[in-house]
Design a protein around this nucleic acid. Structure first.
Lengths: 402, 402
DNA sequence: CGATTAAACTCGTGGATCGAGCATAAACGA
DNA sequence: TCGTTTATGCTCGATCCACGAGTTTAATCG
């Protein structure tokens, strides 16, 4: 197998061709609107190299330069922007009740292009509808589309959907979403992708290790280290909800027992209130939260759920030692509603030596758009590689030979 | 802060100088005894480049070539070996009852140079004794020593010992172990380093993501992704023993509650047997395991402990999705003693979709030497970088100018 | 002992960055 | 208004690393 360390596995000179170019494009992506001069400074490039690299990239339709608003003296520089004919990615967000298709250029800002609400949730129906939208976009932009990335509220393994409780799906292969096998199709769990987006450009932007936890029905999330989500070996990493933090006597629909999932969402609240399991635990939870202040029984139930959340989170902080924690969905709602309890329970679950400097726990910044942003990030990660750029270059130089 | 993605942050040409050299040295380390021809093939290097790189490295005293035993026709090649005057690292393993100092060259094989048993466990005493040994080695090898790496049975944060139950230490700074501030001193948790060694060269060599779990007193371990241990933000990652998998009513000495630690070691066995907490849980556990077959009460207690171990492990597999799991210390003893129960409990704790293809659970291959090997790995990772090689080259060329 | 084979060496080529020197386009200021 | 100041972009020769084709070397095989 490949050498484990993240070093130069290969030493081919071909790898060098795109080194500088990739670094520049990464900067453009990391901070849309950067000036060329700033990029050169940041990367330690000589002005000569900057000239060469940018002109090469311009020739390849990978970036364009527009005059920057001058603020001070000196020769004005230009801002680097995606080329109007440059590569694009299609990002799809497939949620419980609706779907969205967005197109993004190399600056990583998704523009919603199509969307819709599921009429039926039957996999064939949904896939067919979305596939048509993808096909329309693909047709409109042609070979500019370099990757298609799908965020889906489902467990994903080896690039395939294994199971989705909220959609009511079993194993489903989403390969039909693209008609062109040459365009890579990337499938990712929505919570994982949302975490990736938070770590790269959201509430935790810049942090070296980010633990993102979100609660909708059950727990989702991911640990993002140096900007890369911890996929695991099969791509199904980040199923933190199935750590046995909960009551070991409770069976989880996943097949295991004592899952954290059951202790932190609407099902937990209902159980603590002595009510039957809600059909839609997410909506149920929001409704209960809305009437928190009034009813002491409700307050107690919410409090127990918050405690379950905070204790589990503390355990994860003990084990994974993230620099920053971001909370999404119901997790953030619960914390916001019961801040003192949350903080106390978190501290109670932390190892003593961690308590003086616990990692900041932040609300996710991207909200319901996190997964879509994460899908764009993944797709661009795929495009902005040596291979990806080489493929684009081959395509482009054959189309318009200088 | 630095750009999160693991790409070329810098594009300086200086980074290129060592690309090929690093790749070759990494190969030598990965498989001591490789031939130069094999390395060139693996790295996709032309014979011309191989010639240039090896001769450059020979000039810098980074490697030597010795004739390879010829097996077939053709011009004989040579095996790459560490240079007799090449860089060295010192690895220290600081355990509960004893300590060991080893020296390793670039092939990563530690040779025990000094060792001893603690007479007193007082930090000053221990540090003083070990520091003397380190100083002797450092003096003997002089500037060839490029890094000192310490594996210690303690919680480590920001390169400092925070606390060690087995040694009875509170916060202790090990900086005194080296007298020369120019030589980097790396401190690591023993279980983390053992896991690193298993992932790089032990039972899980070559796997892309490895979860190592070891039980001595409490649980230690690490997740190793692409050959790099998941240190976390403060360096205290891998404290899996303080995930709340256990009885929430039990207080852990760490300050948290319900820690897994309390459910899987000698303390758990004693509790299940209704005996008082053992003074030395590790020895106690081995003693109980030795008399397993006889006593049904003992079998039951061991079984419960095994179940606690397997359930927690299953949860970690659910969450982290490793390609391989390695077990060390009492964890492996427990599994070996109660294999059917372990396997059943593991499956019971796994999410249903994981059961058909669970990751292999292997016994650690390096035994009690794992931590020492891991310390060598860490130290060499430090040396075999652009900066490390550049520093060595500066030193060497000034000493013996061509 | 010549044929065969695998590997190493030589050397000219090419690609990417560097860096010094020069050119350029703005704001500033008298 | 027009030179000065300042930051930036462009040009071009130098350098460094790897490539790869051709040649040489050192072993085994028959």
């Amino acid at each position: 197998m490949a050498t484990p360390r993240n070093r130069a596995g290969s030493v081919r000179a071909a790898d060098l061709r795109w080194r500088g170019a990739l670094a520049v494009l990464d900067e453009m992506r990391r901070a849309p609107g950067v000036t060329r001069a700033a990029v050169a400074r940041r990367l330690g490039l000589s002005t000569g190299s900057a000239t060469e690299i940018t002109s090469r990239l311009r020739d390849l339709a990978l970036l364009a330069e527009t005059p920057a608003a001058t603020t001070s003296r000196g020769r004005p520089t230009s801002v680097l922007t995606p080329h109007p004919d440059g590569p694009l990615v299609i990002a799809v967000d497939l949620r419980q009740e609706d779907w969205r298709c967005a197109v993004a250029s190399l600056d990583g800002r998704p523009g919603i292009a199509e969307s819709g609400t599921h009429r039926s949730r039957a996999p064939e129906q949904v896939i067919d509808t979305v596939a048509q939208a993808v096909r329309r976009l693909h047709h409109r932009y042609g070979q500019r589309v370099r990757a298609i990335s799908v965020a889906i509220a489902a467990t994903v393994q080896h690039g395939k959907v294994v199971q989705s409780a909220v959609l009511g799906w079993d194993a489903v292969d989403l390969a039909a979403l693209t008609s062109d096998p040459r365009t890579p199709l990337l499938i990712g769990n929505d919570a994982t992708l949302a975490g990736l987006a938070e770590a790269r450009q959201g509430a935790a932007a810049g942090a070296a290790s980010v633990l993102h936890i979100t609660v909708e029905v059950g727990v989702g999330g991911t640990l993002v280290i140096d900007g890369r989500p911890m996929h695991g070996a099969t791509g199904a990493g980040g199923e933190f909800g199935h750590l046995p933090f909960g009551d070991p006597d409770l069976r989880c629909p996943c097949g295991a027992r004592g899952c954290w999932d059951l202790a932190v969402d609407g099902r937990a609240i209902a159980r603590h209130l002595g009510e039957p399991p809600p059909r839609d635990p997410r909506t149920y939870a929001e409704q209960v939260l809305a009437r928190t202040p009034a009813d002491p029984a409700v307050r107690a139930a919410i409090g127990r759920t918050t405690t379950g959340l905070a204790h589990g989170l503390a355990g994860l902080i003990n084990a994974l030692d993230p620099a920053v924690v971001t909370l999404g969905g119901l997790a953030e709602s619960l914390r916001a509603a019961t801040e003192p309890q949350f903080t106390a329970a978190l501290a109670d679950g932390l190892m003593r030596f961690r308590r003086p400097h616990p990692p900041p726990v932040l609300a996710a910044a991207l909200g319901r758009d996190g997964a879509l942003h994460g899908a764009v990030v993944t797709a661009l990660d795929h495009v902005l590689t040596e291979d990806g750029l080489a493929a684009w270059a081959a395509l482009h130089s054959s189309r318009s030979p200088a």
